[in-house]
Amino acid sequence: MALLEVTNLTKRFGGLVANDDVTMSVNEGEIVGLIGPNGAGKTTLFNSIAGVYNPEQGKILFRGEDITRYNPEQACQAGIARTFQIVRVFKGMTVLDNVMVGSYLRSQSDADARERALEVLKFTGLYPKKDYLASALTIADKKRLEMARALATRPTLLMLDEAMAGLNPTECQAAVDCIRAISREGITILMVEHVMEVIMPISDRIVVLNSGKKIAEGEPKAVSADPEVIKAYLGGKYVARS
């Protein structure tokens, strides 16, 4: 049984079908990449899984548990942590305090929470900036802080929504290293990414959405060779560059 199983999921906004009968799964320990052109419905799928939206149809199973109707806090308590495409750090709080909020979820005491938070900060390389106000961070560090905060909740599944958008190549590489390290810790990862050079090598599997529908799923190589994917999204661009 897969860790996360999404079956026949449909989410509408008024007349617009943002997710149309999507079926996909994520296995324990995998890194799965979710790609698709702008407006394909990637963030919407994330939000349904994370409990932000209630889908009209379909089912979401997480570790065999039906979480379709969960709200965001229940999803997180169940072990799904996520970052946001548009960062939502707690701007008026320090980096450490941001992470503390996450680490309180599964801590017995204040000392426990603090220890866990510091651990995560060291792991993500944010430790030297732990006393900065979150609002003072660069965009790359804000994205990293969101990741750290999510990790502090000790998730089973980590969902990253465009964790590398807007970063320069060096920052991107650092983020990739960080994601690989998270994966080595045994945390399963589902990530949305636009930067193809990044997502193709890092992912075990790729799921492709287009206009709300899943149009392909499989190993990165196979997917990037899929004519429908090329037509819908990759165009000549990725193929030419790789």
């Binding site: 994370a50 932000v52 709200n71 965001p72 806090e73 997180c76 308590q77 942590a81 996520r82 946001f84 939502r88 750090v89 707690f90 701007k91 008026g92 709080m93 909020v101 996450g102 979820l105 905060r149 999510a150 502090a152 909740t153």
Partner: peptide
């Protein structure tokens, strides 16, 4: 600071 951000952290 951010209600939705907080919810995402449980």
């Amino acid at each position: 600071e951010d209600e939705d951000g907080a919810r995402a952290l449980g």
